[in-house]
């Protein structure tokens, strides 16, 4: 008990009086112990039950084995992950708080549309194994069979189809960029806005809207109720067999969908390189371990290893395209 008491009060001291500026102090305080010497927290900026929560909870036991300390999952949902991301940055950058999040599109969205008190570069993503993509789909009952049908109909009359979509999303950016490239009037499109990807997918599967643009992986359980029309990526994904955007509209800009995975404070990489290296190798080892790959892929969770360089580059590229087309995200 007394040890715990001391540690808590020390933390309070560093967190409260020295404030966030003195970034390295916690690691100095624990310098006598080798990292990690106590349980590690994993912040998930979404409520229980979502993809990131399930990813964190499935991955944590294996990562915990390699780090030698238990991992506590902390859910901080709300406001499009803004609350959770802010909370994460407020924690000391001593390697005892990790982040599991949909870095794209939520970090750029927080910054671009929500006046977030941080920059995308305050976060360092170690690995973003889950890379979703926008998919345009229609119901098997709609009579639409190909992306050409859609483009021709919308060219003739932009109001002829209802389009299920989430506001301020990567999907919306992709739709508008496609419209620009193939020459469809953006402003006249009949958008039907949904609060989440799930409701939008259900609506198109039930033929309530004519087409929908939503994250493609979520469509997998509904595969036999929909016709995939177009995938916004430069290569085919998940065996959908649909057209891909680089063929249909060469030269069209597009953004990847959700990029989810593991991050730390950017200041940790600079401030405590040894600790960062310990975490990074543990995450890499865990991601590549066969038993982890088996356990996660059976739960339809991604565990591919891309590494920090590819992950951060991809995140920043997405952020740049989103910033370039900010007006679409902000609506009017």
């Amino acid at each position: 008990m007394t040890i715990k008491y001391n540690r808590r009060s020390l933390l309070k001291l560093t967190g409260g009086t020295l404030a966030a500026a003195s970034v390295a102090s916690p690691s100095i305080l624990f310098a006598q112990d080798s990292y990690p010497s106590r349980p590690i927290n994993v912040v998930v900026p979404f409520d229980t039950g979502g993809y990131n929560d399930r990813l964190a909870r499935a991955f944590a036991p294996f990562l915990s084995q390699r780090l030698g300390q238990p991992l506590n999952i902390i859910n901080r949902g709300g406001a499009g992950a803004l609350l959770g991301h802010s909370y994460f940055l407020q924690q000391p950058d001593d390697g005892y708080t990790l982040l599991c999040t949909s870095a794209a599109p939520f970090l750029p969205l927080n910054v671009l549309t929500q006046n977030a008190p941080f920059a995308v570069t305050d976060f360092h993503m170690m690995n973003l194994p889950s890379r979703d993509y926008t998919m345009m789909a229609t119901s098997t009952e709609s009579g639409i069979t190909s992306i050409e049908d859609v483009i021709n109909q919308l060219k003739a009359d932009p109001r002829s189809l209802t389009i299920g979509i989430q506001p301020a999303s990567a999907d919306l950016v992709n739709l508008m960029l496609l419209a620009d490239t193939v020459g469809i009037s953006r402003d006249e499109l009949r958008l039907v806005t949904y609060d989440g990807g799930g409701p939008a997918r259900n609506a198109v599967a039930g033929n309530v809207v004519d087409i929908a643009l939503v994250g493609g992986q979520g469509f997998l359980p509904l595969a036999d109720k929909i016709v995939p029309l177009l995938i916004f990526d430069d290569a085919p994904r998940d065996n959908w067999g649909s057209a891909i955007v680089t063929e249909v509209a060469p030269g069209a800009d597009f953004v990847l969908g959700s990029q989810r995975g593991w991050g730390v404070h950017a200041s940790l990489v600079e401030g405590s390189p040894e600790i960062y290296q310990t975490i990074l190798s543990a995450v890499e080892e865990t991601s590549k371990a066969p038993e982890v790959i088996e356990a996660l892929s059976s739960a339809q969770l991604a565990t591919d290893w891309f590494g920090p360089e590819v992950s951060n580059r991809s995140l920043l590229a997405t952020a740049a395209v989103m910033e370039q087309h900010l007006s679409i995200l902000q609506g009017s």
């Binding site: 409520d47 229980t48 039950g49 979502g50 399930r54 499935a58 799930g198 997918r201 259900n202 359980p221 509904l222 036999d224 109720k225 356990a295 059976s298 739960a299 339809q300």
Partner: peptide, 27 residues
Amino acid sequence: ALGIPGGGATAILLAAFAMHNVVGGPS
């Protein structure tokens, strides 16, 4: 029947299904 969650609780159940290589839905 559809493999889609109506709320949080069924989302968890679907996750448990998936962990055991069972995918809900019409099939």
